[in-house]
């Protein structure tokens, strides 16, 4: 077996390994087809094409993963926003468990609408909309936290808790954007 044939075999094996699990039969088809080609240059060119096809298939799967990830995180964020809006309505209609200060209603409304906008920005991946909504969601809590630290008021410091879900949301958005960037570069797939 010539060096070119060995290289072709190696490339075809690599292509078969790169293909997603649901395309296993196609990977095996590529491997066997390369082995059946008698001309070494033809086998090498064919195997190179198989590797490219496998990379393209993997990228397609990656895109589906990114889309599903954005959809799931977006839905969770939207539900989170709806929860705030329900709290706002309860505060406005006097159905809350305890009497609610007007500034709390404003904070809750800001969180609710911002989270809904962030969810839309994430699902349809409009980075400007997402990050603007994210900042608008974070600013009221940041303001209350800074005020709480300045006045040493425990009550205001309690409004720091949304930073945890917001940090998780930002982390998920950055991770999905990184995955998407990776899926555009065949060599990195």
């Amino acid at each position: 077996m010539s060096f070119a044939q060995k290289l072709a075999k190696f490339l075809a094996d690599l292509a078969a390994r790169l293909l997603p699990a649901n395309r296993h039969a196609w990977g095996e088809a590529m491997r066997q087809e390369v082995r059946a080609i008698e001309s070494a240059p033809d086998a090498l060119a064919f195997a190179g094409g198989c590797l490219w096809a496998a990379l393209c298939e993997r990228i397609t799967v990656m895109k589906a993963i990114v889309f599903t990830g954005r959809l799931v995180v977006g839905l969770v964020t939207a539900l989170y926003g709806v929860m705030f809006l329900v709290m706002m309505v309860n505060g406005l209609t006097g159905q809350a468990v305890q009497p609610v200060q007007p500034w709390i209603v404003v904070w809750v409304a800001a969180m609710g609408f911002s989270d809904l906008a962030a969810a839309a920005g994430l699902v349809f991946w409009k980075p400007k909309l997402f990050w603007t909504a994210f900042v608008l969601a974070a600013l009221p809590s940041l303001g209350l936290t800074v005020f709480g630290l300045a006045t040493r008021s425990d009550m205001f410091l309690r409004f720091a808790w949304p930073f945890v879900p917001l940090a998780l949301l930002a982390g998920a958005a950055l991770f999905l954007a990184w995955l998407e960037r990776g899926s555009r570069r065949p060599i990195a797939a």
């Binding site: 088809a29 590529m30 094409g49 490219w52 096809a53």
Partner: peptide, 22 residues
């Protein structure tokens, strides 16, 4: 028909042919 034969007959590279077949 086999992949290699189809590739030769159509003039399509395997990198184009296999995604089409899939």
């Amino acid at each position: 028909r086999y992949g290699y034969d189809l590739s030769k007959e159509t003039g399509l590279k395997s990198g184009t042919l296999y995604p089409l077949l899939i």
